[in-house]
Amino acid sequence: MREIQKVLLVDDDEDIRVIGEMALSAVGGWTTVLARGGQEAIEVAATEQPDVILLDVMMPGMDGPTTLRGLRERPATATIPVVFVTAKIQRHELQRYRDLGALGVIGKPFDPMGLPKTLRELVQRSWAAETRGS
């Protein structure tokens, strides 16, 4: 089965980047690259080609949805799966994020020991659907 190798975590909060990086690398066993905001995320994603991007929704400057649109507009990053991370998940927002092209949403706060499992399930479900559709 295909496995995640590299994850890009995007969050303006340094403490979230620290615990997220710990969870994804030490618990998930993945290479983790970080970005502090939307513009940096687009640049890092193009260079690093992660298997999935964990993207904070509320960030100053370029927010998560705007960053996702930027990623989708560029051929180098157009197909990289994106999972939003947000403290506010309401049903109508969940649908809006999916309509924007996000794979899913992970809530904040998150359990650092459980984050990789949740992310793996979301990504592998999407890969399995792609395989069935191709």
């Binding site: 303006d12 909060d13 403490d15 979230i16 615990i19 997220g20 509320m58 100053p60 947000t86 403290a87 904040k108 706060p109 998150f110 359990d111 650092p112």
Partner: peptide
């Protein structure tokens, strides 16, 4: 903004 960031962060470190 600061309250929002702390709301998301503190719980992830166990300070629910």
């Amino acid at each position: 903004g600061a309250a929002h960031r702390l709301a998301g962060t503190a719980g992830s470190y166990g300070y629910v």
